[in-house]
């Protein structure tokens, strides 16, 4: 990898981590005025002495630059700190929640990719017939609706209305599973609505991208070449058309991972799903700096590494961008 890219990435990382440090401290409010247990509990109110004690205890009375130093030192050691509100190590809390978020984001990603690609390909193949126009308009509208609205709509109709799916949570409380597939089924049933919510709002973008990209690709000379060769329709569509049309999709999906995370936060809160999103909203209400920083950190690292992965993947799917293939011929055009 070339030097400039590496430096750029390190710089991005530094800026993000610094923002991560600064943002909670810029928020109005004080962690020790809000220190409390679960919502609904009786709020503990601290006297000024007590608050000062805690401030000192957690090092918040130190100069900012020293706090910043501690923050970095902790991160390097892999220690994300200790939650003010929950009196637990932040890393443990995050690790407990992370799988749930991963479950619904991956699920939503796969769902939107599959649905978007299939419908997009079908729509492009139909050309400018009515099916295409219908889907096009439909998805244009859907992709503009915010995720939490879709979530609420699903909640009202499919969960509250029809009672097909549970209203909230990731699994049934206090349930003792007889076997692992029963457990899987329960978890799956709980994950359906969050995944649908997140997935549906993603599908529009992917559908539009695949459709437009494929429509462009279908006019290319190499498609005509493939047709002239008498190839089967499936080979033509998959190896020549889709394979080329998917190239821009790779970047698009990676770029959208950030918004997918954002969507997950909202969706989790709608469905009270015990992922990072709900944890984050708790941390915000409690002004729980270490927890907030920890959640931010994990999310941004996730998005960043997804972007880097996409960068690498992009070179893999498009041989024209591969650097290790030395240009053997001077006349080659990139």
């Amino acid at each position: 990898m070339d030097k400039r890219k590496t430096v750029g990435r390190l710089l991005t990382l530094w800026v993000i981590l610094t923002l991560n440090f600064a943002l909670p401290r810029l928020m109005p409010g004080d962690p020790f005025l809000h220190m409390s247990g679960e919502s609904g509990d009786v709020f503990t109110t601290y006297t000024r002495e007590q608050a000062d004690y805690y401030r000192h205890y957690y090092g918040l009375d130190e100069p900012l630059i020293r706090q910043y130093g501690h923050y970095w030192w902790g991160m390097i050691k892999g220690d994300l700190g200790y939650s003010y509100a929950f009196k637990q190590p932040v890393s443990e809390m995050i690790l407990r929640r992370l799988p749930w978020t991963l479950l619904i984001t991956t699920g939503a990603l796969l769902l939107s990719l599959a649905a978007g690609t299939l419908l997009g390909a079908w729509s492009a193949w139909k050309g400018s017939r009515w099916q295409d126009s219908l889907f096009y308009t439909g998805f244009m509208v859907i992709s503009e609706i915010p995720a939490f609205l879709v979530g609420l709509a699903l909640l009202v109709t499919l969960a509250a209305g029809k009672n097909w799916f549970p209203l909230s949570g990731a699994k049934t409380h206090f349930m003792v599973y007889e076997n692992w597939w029963q457990q899987m089924g329960d978890i799956g049933r709980h994950a359906v609505l969050p995944i649908l919510t997140l997935g549906l709002t993603r599908t529009g973008g992917i559908y539009l991208l695949v459709r437009n990209s494929l429509r462009t690709v279908l006019t290319k000379d190499y498609i005509r070449t493939a047709k002239a060769k008498g190839l089967r329709h499936r080979i033509l569509m998959v190896h020549h058309a889709l394979r080329n049309a998917m190239i821009p999709l790779v970047t698009r999906v990676a770029m959208q991972l950030g918004t997918l995370m954002g969507g997950a936060v909202l969706a989790e809160n709608v469905f009270q799903y015990p992922g990072l999103g709900t944890l984050m909203s708790r941390a915000v209400t409690a002004r729980d700096f270490p927890l907030l920083q920890g959640v931010f950190l994990v999310m941004t690292l996730g998005v960043l590494s997804a972007n880097w992965l996409a960068d690498w993947l992009y070179q893999q799917v498009d041989p024209r961008l591969k650097k290790n293939h030395a240009r053997r011929q001077k006349g080659g055009v990139s």
């Binding site: 000379d221 190499y222 070449t225 047709k227 002239a228 008498g230 190896h239 020549h240 190239i247 498009d318």
Partner: peptide
């Protein structure tokens, strides 16, 4: 009929060949 009875050497342009498939494979694809 295509390629087995009558084949066409297309006019040379960069995009006349699939950019993401090795040429050996494109040659033998039919």
């Amino acid at each position: 009929w295509r390629w087995r009875e009558m084949a066409l050497v297309f006019q040379n342009a960069l995009e006349v060949l699939n950019p993401v498939m090795p040429v050996g494979r494109q040659v033998t694809e039919p």
